[in-house]
Design a protein around this nucleic acid. Sequence first.
DNA 1: CGGTCCCTTGACAGCGTTCAATATACGTGG
DNA 2: CCACGTATATTGAACGCTGTCAAGGGACCG
Lengths: 261, 261
Amino acid sequence: MRVEPLAEAARMLPNQDPAPGAMASVPAPRMRTQCAICGVREACLACDLLPAPARAEFTGCGSRRVARGKHVYRAGDAFSALFTVRSGSCKTCLPLPDGREQVTGFQLSGDLLGLEAIGAGVHRCNAIALEDSRVCVIEFAGLEAAALPLPELQRHLHKAMSLEIAREHALMLVLGTMDAEERLASFLLGLSQRYADRGLPATPLHLHMKREEIGSHLGMKVETVSRALSRLRDEGLVRPELRRLHLLDLAALSARVGARG
Amino acid sequence: MRVEPLAEAARMLPNQDPAPGAMASVPAPRMRTQCAICGVREACLACDLLPAPARAEFTGCGSRRVARGKHVYRAGDAFSALFTVRSGSCKTCLPLPDGREQVTGFQLSGDLLGLEAIGAGVHRCNAIALEDSRVCVIEFAGLEAAALPLPELQRHLHKAMSLEIAREHALMLVLGTMDAEERLASFLLGLSQRYADRGLPATPLHLHMKREEIGSHLGMKVETVSRALSRLRDEGLVRPELRRLHLLDLAALSARVGARG
DNA sequence: CGGTCCCTTGACAGCGTTCAATATACGTGG
DNA sequence: CCACGTATATTGAACGCTGTCAAGGGACCG
């Protein structure tokens, strides 16, 4: 069992984060140059943990391109596979009866998609690519079978699911206790941290999602997102350039999240 | 694999719930008269799914009394075991640096506690009994080991975790899109449904938690909870009697949740 | 019986939503 | 390459809901 993801997980959780209040995320698996099964760059859940003999048998793993705006899966689809984001990024959103949607999360490379569907056997949210992306398809039946003789793989799956739960607890805290500026600061710090985890520059960060999608994720309207962003800009904490955003003062952003982080 | 929990899970999720908008919950396992291992009434995760031979070896399961207001575990505790509520009820809450708390959930009999700690190896929230309760202690190392040769047990665990994730997505929707009355109506409908799942009368329901705890869970202040409750009372939808609450019009409550459920 | 905790209600202020207008970026087709 | 239309982002003004502050009543416990 690699230990880095655990350490990252601990850091990302409330009260222990170096950037207090930053929204927790499922830590990215340490990147490798190539997936042993799919032959695509970077590692994924199954590829990374299956020992060589099992890998040869585990054929339920393949990669798939997803163009910007296209679905990885739709609410209502029967559940059969998990996905990991290999490159690009996605959003997951619960559809509402009136046509609106609640964005439940944004996924960067290495993040898992579809964990919410194992229990019911049906996907409950839409997963949509925010940019041209590539996902790894992991047949869940095969994964479960492969995990039976492999404690390491089983533990990895359990941890990924548990971290997702912890991440959502942190988001509940954001939605339940913070005002607009705090929510936005928390979101930006978390995103920056996740970029850094992946070896990308933590600033400037490229926002692949619309303001409206950020708002849906944070429980705010577009106008409120824009206004909060403008206030953070006026205070010298960030420099927004549409989809590009410079973080100018991480400490001040953390302080802005304050006692609620 | 029993099928009832699956059906229940599907019902509890957005867009498919018989009480639209009711907050989703992890369905209670179908009750049995006695746990085969602990000898306590009702079944639990491990007890119910371990075949007889494995059961004899699995000693990491025992029950524990928890008095009202006492902790099942505390934030910061090392993770070693999951818990199921056998009787009574609990709350889980994320502590905030300033001493306040965010209630992440209420657990009734049959519900699992501690799933959020598997990933980090450390509990991130407090679990506190709302009334004199009894919990079943399930050593996680033993459970994982026991699950290795048992696909059924493994799947059960995966489903429980996945349903927890789906439940929290639904709560994010509540926190992100609903106003005070809708949140409260959704909460009460969900609670009523969970009581019914356990064979208890769906109304009147006994609220073991304080208004303040309901508020923390729903992202509202005590006064707002009280006011929203009074409005629902004035409209003839509920009849509150302090900790006792009659649901007078389920259909109207569902309608109140409206298009957002 | 007194004290504390919990719940409810009122008045007011503040923040976020709503409605509206404007500006800018992007995509499409000429 | 330019022109146009659409989508996205920002900003302003007024309204409404929820938070805040304050007071009072009632249940439970020692």
